[in-house]
């Protein structure tokens, strides 16, 4: 077929398409302590963990996850230092590959609401071999039921879809959040304004 008649120039402001992260990001994107937004010894440290599943309910062993969140007081960090962590600076961002059985874990803190009265959440980006574009979702903390009920995103969803976005609090304080890329329990994935994405055929 053709090579481009004219290379992309800055005059063309159509967003560049995504392509899959592929199978071989493992030696390139993960970095030491990528999953530790805070050290385990931090007094408010929690583990955010779960499993990524495909449409057959089989764990996905080659996904890469990133989270982005406010700190415990709802402040949004502008600090550098995510890639080379000093153990003290809260940058609000983390990255981890899943393990061989699709599990992931981050060490972080519960985010505070960025505005008074809003439901706090952690943002999650999912990349995987087989996934041609990234997927965005939110991981809501389960506690503030009033704020959850008033949340514009959650209240726009039917119950069986809404619950895919709310993490479970475990007895030891950890947060559990599973990701279902497809199927009956499919996680609600988000599309933002100005952010083109094409799913292909959809059923609902």
């Amino acid at each position: 077929m053709s090579t481009p008649a004219s290379p992309q120039t800055s005059a063309d402001l159509t967003p560049t398409p995504a392509q899959t992260v592929g199978p071989f990001y493992g030696y390139a994107l993960p970095f030491p302590d990528g999953e530790k937004l805070v050290d385990r010894s931090h007094p408010d440290a929690i583990r955010l963990h779960g499993t990524v599943y495909d449409g057959d309910g089989v764990p996905v062993p080659d996904a890469l996850l990133e989270i982005w969140q406010a700190d415990g007081q709802g402040r949004i960090s502008a600090e550098h230092g995510s890639l080379i962590r000093d153990g003290y600076t809260f940058t609000g961002w983390g990255r981890t590959p899943v393990d061989n059985v699709g599990r992931f874990r981050f060490t972080t803190v519960d985010p505070g609401p960025t505005e008074e009265g809003r439901a706090p959440f952690i943002l999650l980006t999912v990349f995987a071999r087989g996934l041609l574009d990234r997927l965005f979702t939110r991981i809501y903390l389960p506690e503030d039921t009033g704020a959850l009920a008033a949340d514009p995103l959650l209240s726009s969803l039917p119950e069986e879809r809404r619950r895919t976005l709310i993490a479970a609090r475990e007895e030891d304080g950890d947060l559990r959040f599973d990701v279902h890329l497809q199927g009956a329990e499919e996680t609600v994935f988000l599309q933002y304004p100005n952010t083109p994405q094409v799913t292909g055929p959809v059923t609902g």
Partner: peptide, 19 residues
Amino acid sequence: SSLLRSPTKSLHHTDPEEI
């Protein structure tokens, strides 16, 4: 590889919050 790993439901339109 995309067959079992792509969403089959529409992406949910969401207005961005501060974060």
